[in-house]
Nucleic acid binder design. Structure first.
Lengths: 173, 173
DNA sequence: ATCTGCTTCCAGTATTTACTGAAAGTTCAT
DNA sequence: ATGAACTTTCAGTAAATACTGGAAGCAGAT
């Protein structure tokens, strides 16, 4: 196919763009999502400069977002022998990506939320007025739900792919 | 308890503030999340003016976000007989809240993402180069995963609370 | 037809968030 | 110790997003 290179490039661009939009909707910075998409579909590791060129972004921007992706565990730094430059490569296994995102969001967002719910619950403990009791009850239910969901997340995230599939099958039975 | 009113107010403020921050991290506008928190913990229905006053926001802002919450199915409009004003009340059942958020996010965000993945998959169908094949394979895996997760979401969201709990118990067995 | 009480829209503005580019920092080779 | 190759930081700026307040729209009462 004479233009496979071109059309592959186009498909990849499309993917990068859309992954960026999607990330933004989920509270992830667009550039970070784009770099992630780029690396997920890169046939080989990429340097900061290659990322900069491809997405037409500044060094600072590329650097910040690459480091963030590393801290999320979604990409890793690779060094080539004889070269001082750092290269990056993305985790490509979809289940592994899911697990890492789940783990990080839990740590960064769920845990603090639970903390707040527990505070609000404690602050309204033992109130006698109907309003106070209703508030306490609402906090209690939210806390229950969120901590339950959090434990579910842990459980799923700690599973191997195969086991998760099996369980899901049971779920659909 | 002589200051129960005050401390309840404080606890509620804390909850509203933190729910707002949390919402923002999940890609939901802060004010929208705050109004939601406010109504979830309101002992009674509230009017637009009450919301405006409590959160110290403009009419336009309150209006937009109240309507958005209605479109998410998280609050509903209530009218009192003899009054022309609209009042709002929040869904308070945690499971129901979860179901509605899941359903909307699926519709608004997952479906379009799947669409893109399918496009990219189709665009790289039958490519011969290793890069093309790798890309196609990656899109395929992502599409599988996302559509699977989406079906799981449907399944859970269509369950009654009691049944979900039972299933979850089985899950932890 | 006009007024009143309320809802909706939207142009302009403020706030937040993201990005740039240049300078400073680091590390290793010589 | 100097310099080359690369990474990191950050003040300033640009872009995106959210908010305000007034004006327009709408519907029921008079």
């Amino acid at each position: 196919m004479i233009d496979e290179g071109v059309s592959l490039g186009e498909a990849r661009d499309e993917f990068v763009t859309q992954w960026g939009i999607m990330g933004a909707q989920w509270g992830i910075n667009r550039t970070m999502a784009q770099i992630h998409a780029l690396l997920m579909t890169a046939p080989d590791v990429m340097s900061t400069d290659e990322v900069m060129e491809t997405l037409e972004i500044s060094r600072g921007n590329a650097h910040t977002n690459l480091k963030d992706l590393v801290s999320w565990g979604l990409i890793r730094i690779v060094t080539k022998k004889g070269e001082r430059k750092e290269f990056f490569e993305a985790e490509k296994d979809v289940w592994e990506i899911f697990r890492r995102v789940a783990r990080e969001r839990k740590r960064r967002e769920i845990e603090p939320a639970l903390e707040t719910l527990r505070n609000c619950k404690a602050a309204s403990e033992g109130m006698k007025s109907p309003e106070g009791r209703a508030f306490h009850e609402q906090m209690d239910q939210l806390e229950d739900f969120v901590s339950f969901a959090s434990r579910m997340g842990d459980r799923v995230a700690s599973m191997q792919h195969g086991k998760a599939i099996k369980l899901a099958m049971k779920f659909f039975s």
